[in-house]
């Protein structure tokens, strides 16, 4: 017997994130996630249609509370997510570098940018209404006010590239305004998404506001695109063929559709407000003025 043995590490089981809990896929399926060199990294859950349906149910259930929360509260929670992410910086750097293709320095920049992106969006929660709303000078004795409201439950096909920064950049704009979402993580690189779910679970974010599925976007996204209780779909991570299929299915209940970008997205660039406005409705309230 040798004097000392290398301690065997305790590995993490990567599961789904639905309604604030971490279930395995109801289908019992998983798939192998490897590094770019082909080394085994983990078995990730391969979500099914029923998992997608459960996630939509959780998102719908969370919608009244989350959309009804004050903007200040939502902003603080997004900021809290940034705090929790910052605290796990090393873990994300390790996870991103393990996938290969990215050095520790570059991975660190991506994590930093993800934290900064969350902070940026956190500040939008109580300002987007002032930027997009309006007091309308109608030609009559009426008070008339337009304000943005969240669309509802949004399905998000996260980008295949940028497993953390891309993911944070598509989730934050959807939820900061009060929507809840079901996210399909990058198929090739799903592990940072599940670790992000651990961040979300410890950030005072109510369960069900963000639900994360791992597996095949081509398999799950069409179910979400055709789901009658989903109000919008972000197809950023869908390949052209899948995007067309999903957009066609989304027409059934007139979902708001954010089409995939024409050009490759530079996730480090100023994101603008389009990702928020894509999933906002405008409500206009009239009331007579008189005595």
């Amino acid at each position: 017997m040798s004097e000392r043995t290398e301690r065997l590490s305790v590995r993490k089981t990567y599961k789904l994130f639905i309604g604030g809990a971490f279930p395995r896929s109801e289908s019992g399926r998983s798939y192998v996630v490897t590094s770019s060199k082909g080394d085994f990294l983990a078995n990730a859950a391969r979500a099914s249609r029923k998992d997608a349906r459960d996630a939509v149910g959780a998102a719908r259930k969370a919608f009244p509370g989350w959309s009804g929360a004050t903007a200040y509260n939502r902003g603080q929670i997004l900021y809290r997510i940034a705090e929790m992410l910052e605290g796990r910086r090393a873990q994300f750097v390790a996870e991103i570098t393990a996938m290969g293709g990215v050095g520790a320095k570059q991975a660190g920049e991506m994590v930093d940018a993800s934290v900064d992106r969350l902070v940026w969006y956190a500040g939008w929660s109580d300002k987007i209404g002032a930027v997009l709303g309006s007091s309308n000078p109608v030609a009559g004795p009426y008070f008339n006010l337009s304000s943005p409201e969240p669309t509802g439950v949004v399905a998000v096909v996260a980008p295949q590239e940028g497993p953390l920064l891309g993911l944070v950049s598509v989730i934050a704009p959807v939820i900061v305004t009060g929507n809840t979402c079901v996210v399909i993580a990058s198929e090739r690189a799903p592990l940072p998404a599940i670790t992000l779910a651990e961040v979300l679970a410890t950030s005072d974010l109510p369960g069900g506001v963000v639900n994360i599925l791992t597996g095949s976007a081509a398999e799950i996204a069409p179910w979400l695109a055709g789901h009658m209780d989903v109000n919008g779909i972000d197809l950023t991570g869908a390949d052209p063929e899948l995007a067309v299929t999903c957009e066609e299915l989304a027409a059934e209940n007139l979902k708001r559709v954010l089409r995939p970008p024409v050009d490759r997205v530079n996730w480090l660039a100023d994101p603008g407000i389009e990702r928020m406005t894509a999933f906002l409705e405008t409500k206009t309230v009239w009331h007579p003025i008189g005595i």
């Binding site: 309006s134 309308n136 000078p137 109608v138 030609a139 009559g140 009426y142 008339n144 337009s146 405008t282 409500k283 206009t284 309230v285 009239w286 009331h287 007579p288």
Partner: peptide, 14 residues
Amino acid sequence: VWSNTFNRFDPTSP
């Protein structure tokens, strides 16, 4: 949402 009125329209109002 029209409150205490209905079917009002105006070009300034979305």
